[in-house]
């Protein structure tokens, strides 16, 4: 891990619990995410008062009420806009955007891509349950083709977004995926996202047990998950399977599956590079999960360093003051042509 993770302080996870009752449905995947966040925040070591959670609308977006930090439950899809203003007003804050698949990929799709391209130093946690939960069960922009929901009784004819591919092309500098059931992995990914300087995007596969139960069953059940999930590790080959005996590599633009009989080294497999300069590699990787029969990669797809938006903004401000001197109202008013009336 190349990123610099701040050392833990004495804050406890209880310190981040707010006094509000958590009102998600019993069994909702959101609970696991909230629990990991409360656990991870003290470990990250940023004081509570410098943490701001911002959300849009949807089940996930209730999240800020349950964390005892600063928080803002905004309007549908627009959390990235509010976050941009907060971060530019005070770059010292640790800003977290909590959103869902409808919130950030449908009504707020525009804001999400622009947040990524600007590379604002914020962390986006997208709870992807492939359904509209708060409005009680309509298909979402990540629901698969053919999905039968209340608004698609004959099956959805919308093709789903691949959120990882989308934010990669939009320019996010840290892109990762994790699963609600794999809490240890999730905590690790949250810490990495927090440590990354720049726009961090984390997609969490989250189960809605009421309106879309089991959407990720194959990825979470012990019988299937080892063949269905590929854990990305920096500097390691793309290996999966219960016996770690299967590998992926590229053959041109295609994905090739290999059965490993001998040691990995002998197979001459290419290794996963989070900081690969080429975004094409991460894109290739992000599409693997869409191919039937291939495992879904989870972990960090891409982590590269770029100047952040707020850094550039602060530099411009400082540069203008250096060049022109601090603003002087009198000078401003008499700039241009003036005349005096005696």
């Amino acid at each position: 891990m190349a990123d610099n993770i701040p050392v833990a302080t004495k804050a406890l996870k209880e310190d981040f619990a707010s006094d509000q009752d958590v009102r998600w449905c019993p069994g909702c995947g959101d609970y696991a995410i909230l629990a990991q966040m409360k656990k991870v925040l003290p470990e990250i070591g940023i004081p509570r008062e410098k943490v701001v959670f911002i959300s849009g609308i949807g089940c996930a977006s209730r999240f800020p009420y349950y964390i005892n930090s600063y928080g803002f439950h905004t309007i549908h899809g627009r959390a990235p806009a509010v976050a941009t203003g907060i971060k530019l007003a005070n770059p010292e804050l640790s800003v977290w955007i909590i959103t869902g698949d409808g919130d950030s990929l449908s009504i707020g799709g525009n804001h999400l891509i622009h947040l990524c391209r600007r590379n604002l130093d914020v962390n986006v946690i997208l709870f992807n349950n492939q359904i509209y939960g708060l409005t009680k069960g309509q298909y979402s922009p990540t629901s698969p083709l053919g999905k039968v929901t209340k608004t698609t009784p004959y099956g959805s004819i919308d093709r789903p977004f691949n959120p990882i591919s989308l934010v990669l092309s939009a320019g996010a500098t840290f892109v990762a995926r994790t699963i609600d059931r794999d809490t240890k992995h999730m905590a690790e990914i949250f810490k990495r996202a927090a440590a990354h300087k720049g726009c961090s995007f984390v997609e969490v596969y989250q189960n809605c047990n009421i309106f879309n139960d089991g959407a990720y069953r194959l990825l979470t059940e012990p019988e299937t998950k080892f063949d269905q999930v590929l854990y990305l590790e920096d500097g390691k080959p793309l290996i999966y399977g219960k016996e770690k005996n299967r590998a992926l590599r590229s053959n041109g633009f295609e994905v090739e599956t290999l059965e490993l009989n001998e040691s990995v080294e002998n197979q001459d497999l290419p290794v996963h590079r989070e900081n690969s300069e080429s975004e094409a590699y991460a894109q290739w990787l992000s599409r693997i999960g869409d191919v039937p029969g291939l495992p879904v990669p989870v972990g960090v797809f891409r982590a590269v360093q770029r100047e952040t938006y707020e850094q550039l903004s602060e530099q411009q401000l400082a540069g203008a003051i250096q060049k022109k001197g601090p603003g002087d109202l009198k000078q401003l008013f008499i700039s241009g042509d003036t005349w005096k009336v005696e």
């Binding site: 701001v52 911002i54 803002f72 905004t74 309007i75 627009r78 990235p80 806009a81 509010v82 976050a83 941009t84 203003g85 907060i86 971060k87 530019l88 007003a89 005070n90 804050l93 525009n110 804001h111 622009h114």
Partner: peptide, 20 residues
């Protein structure tokens, strides 16, 4: 901030006000 749209422009302004 030249925002991506009218909505983001006011949203960012509200965020900035929240932060001071």
């Amino acid at each position: 901030l030249q925002a991506e749209d009218e909505i983001a422009a006011i949203g960012a302004a509200i965020g900035a006000s929240f932060a001071g």
